[in-house]
């Protein structure tokens, strides 16, 4: 095979892997949107916050140490211990559940029955707030996250492809790991929503709020539940992104890319989120590889958005979304 085709194939594979990560963030959006009709712009910042918290707990950082130091003139930064990864993950999940409860109790409870666009803007405010809290709590420097995820080039794939095509593909172990995590996560989510009582209640709420209320499902409980699950998904996404490129602010910008993913896949469809993510991942990598050099490069910044925009003009509900029917 000619080199160009091989390169393109490698780029495509890498794009698939990047797409998996986009899908992970997009999943959190879909979950919240289905259950409560809230388009949660803060999902990306939640991923950043979860990753920051995980690193902070693992390193034994003192929360709000900068603030405490500034007020009392002290100089404390660390407790001096290191928490094992598993315990830290459990603690972070607890933090995210607490966060879900707070969000529900103090924000969205007061915004019931508002227009979707107001809710959307509230989540933009939430994103800013959470970003500030995250930075204030754990500091804004770039942190290294190491929870024992394998990294580096996968040598098996390299040697196999080298044997087959005479050119070894470079695939990061981390990306393969992320793919497996995503598959497992989706499997768990599907099982949860199909086979548990809470999952059924969740689907009922997603279908029809009033009908769900009338058969005795507590809406506020379901919303806390779904925000917690979204927090958990954010933690997974944040951990993998963080392990890949360090925990830093740009994480929340990467998460913005989940928006075009959703527009492609449809806001209400979990498989849509996955496939949309893969299309965007492959599309932007291939576009950068094929067209990028001609027009100056760095097209990854906007390609996803423009693709989604063009796509929307022809199919406003996305690939798998429910058809939008308007009534006066």
């Amino acid at each position: 095979m000619p080199d160009q085709v091989l390169f393109a194939a490698e780029v495509m594979l890498n794009g698939l892997m990047a797409g998996v990560l986009y899908s992970l963030v997009a999943l959190g959006f879909v979950l919240i949107f289905k259950a409560s009709g809230i388009f949660n712009y803060a999902q990306g910042v939640m991923a950043l916050f979860a990753a920051l918290t995980l690193v902070g707990i693992m390193d034994g950082q003192v929360p709000f140490s900068h603030l405490i130091n500034a007020i009392f003139g002290t100089n404390i930064h660390h407790f001096g211990w290191h928490t094992p990864a598993l315990l830290a993950i459990i603690l972070t999940i607890m933090v995210m559940v607490l966060f879900a409860w707070l969000v529900q109790r103090f924000i969205f409870r007061h915004l019931v029955n508002q227009e979707p666009i107001i809710l959307f803007m509230a989540t933009i405010g939430l994103a800013y707030f959470l970003e500030g809290v995250g930075d204030l709590m754990w500091g804004s420097d770039i942190k290294k996250l190491d929870v024992g995820i394998p990294k580096g080039m996968n040598e098996t794939i390299e040697s196999i492809t080298h044997g087959a095509f005479g050119y070894g593909f470079f695939i990061d172990n981390l990306d393969i790991f992320a793919t497996f995590v995503a598959i497992i996560l989706v499997a768990i989510l599907v099982c949860f929503s199909q086979y548990t009582k809470q999952g059924r209640a969740l689907r009922a709420v997603a279908d029809d709020h009033q009908a769900a209320l009338s058969v005795g499902i507590s809406l506020s409980y379901i919303w806390i539940l779904v925000w917690s699950i979204a927090g958990f998904v954010a933690l997974v996404a944040g951990t993998i992104w963080g392990a890949k490129s360090g925990v830093q602010f740009s994480l929340s910008l990467i998460a913005l890319k989940a928006l075009p993913v959703l527009m492609l896949g449809g806001f209400t469809s979990i498989p849509g989120a996955i496939i949309g993510g893969l299309i965007i991942g492959v599309g932007e990598k291939l576009f950068e590889f094929l067209v990028g050099p001609w027009i100056g490069g760095a097209t990854e910044n906007w390609f996803a958005y423009v693709l989604a925009l063009l796509f929307l003009v022809f199919r406003p509900q996305g690939l798998f979304g429910e058809k939008i029917i308007e009534r006066v």
């Binding site: 007061h110 107001i118 509230a122 933009i124 800013y128 970003e131 500030g132």
Partner: peptide, 17 residues
């Protein structure tokens, strides 16, 4: 700067509510 983020975000939410 961080406090500014918190206050700006918080105010948005408070105003919307």
């Amino acid at each position: 700067q961080h406090l500014y983020f918190i206050i700006a975000g918080g105010l948005i939410i408070i105003f919307l509510i």
